[in-house]
């Protein structure tokens, strides 16, 4: 597709700080190259704002290659935009027809309070990881991976779950702001592998407890999270989390 230069009306959520009352603001942006990524378009818009002496739009970004999970933007009703399996930084302006309105909102969840504009506080995810999303012992270096024979199917499934980048799109997409897909990806990844099995029960119990504590909603199996997940984490991981959690609750040695 040959490069074109498009015009858009950008309707974006502006909120000065966590306590301020936010609202939508409209900006007109011309000359947007169809080869730009979505974040480059925001950069371009911010440059015009800075030149006018206005406060640029605050948004999270880091790798800009689809692996860090920072670029949280709810675009036209979809986290990371309407394309399947991409993050905002991997979304390009060629996906947006010329002369249209693009509405950008922050992730909306009580557990992800807005810090400023499109930046939300996702430290709830960090605390969930801290509650059990790890293996306590050193499991070696890359070359030690083949020390332990693991069937290819299982390794693949664990790898699929491990693809989760902790972006929070699942929470943003869920009508209940549930974090089940994220937690299930972490629990699955480790529960499937021998290195993670030793702590699997405790992990499932603690991570669900922390998830509840953070004020995320409950899963009603609508499937919206998987549909919007940039890494296409599937619903079977949520079932595994339910299984891990329930069997742990019924059979683990921790009475809590």
């Amino acid at each position: 597709m040959a490069e074109q230069h498009n015009s858009y009306k950008i309707k974006v959520w502006r909120q000065a700080n966590a306590n301020a009352k936010g609202g939508f603001k409209n900006y007109k942006l011309d000359g947007v190259s169809t080869d730009m990524s979505f974040l480059e378009m925001i950069d371009m818009l911010n440059e015009t704002l800075v030149r006018k002496g206005e406060d640029p739009i605050s948004f999270d970004h880091d790798c800009r290659e689809g692996i860090c999970g920072a670029c949280s933007m709810y675009i036209n009703g979809h986290p990371h935009g309407m394309l399947e399996g991409v993050t905002t930084c991997q979304l390009h302006m060629r996906s947006f027809p010329n002369n249209t309105t693009i509405t950008i909102e922050p992730w909306r969840a009580a557990a992800f309070p807005v810090i400023k504009d499109l930046t939300v506080n996702r430290s709830a995810f960090d605390r969930i990881i801290q509650s059990g999303g790890y293996v306590s012992v050193n499991t070696g270096n890359a070359r030690d991976a083949n020390e332990m024979p693991i069937p290819k199917e299982i390794a693949d499934e664990a790898f699929e779950a491990a693809a989760c980048i902790g972006c929070g799109a699942c929470v943003a997409a869920c009508k209940n702001a549930s974090a089940m897909l994220f937690v299930s990806a972490k629990v699955s990844q480790l529960a499937l592998l021998p290195q993670g099995k030793a702590e699997a029960q405790k992990r499932a119990e603690n991570m669900v407890a922390q998830m509840d504590e953070e004020g995320f909603g409950s899963c009603t199996n609508t499937g919206a999270c998987s549909a919007e997940c940039p890494k296409l984490i599937g619903q079977e991981h949520i079932a595994r989390l339910n299984r891990e959690y329930l069997t742990a609750k019924a059979g683990s040695d921790f009475v809590k």
């Binding site: 979809h78 509405t103 909306r108 557990a111 919206a224």
Partner: peptide
């Protein structure tokens, strides 16, 4: 209980909602 809790978990609604749920019923 769940409904009230889930409402509390999403205090601010989106202006545009893409409705990615797998069925109308599930929503």
């Amino acid at each position: 209980f769940l409904t009230l809790q889930n409402k509390k978990a999403r205090p601010t609604a989106y202006a545009v909602n893409g409705n990615a749920e797998k069925s109308w019923a599930s929503r």
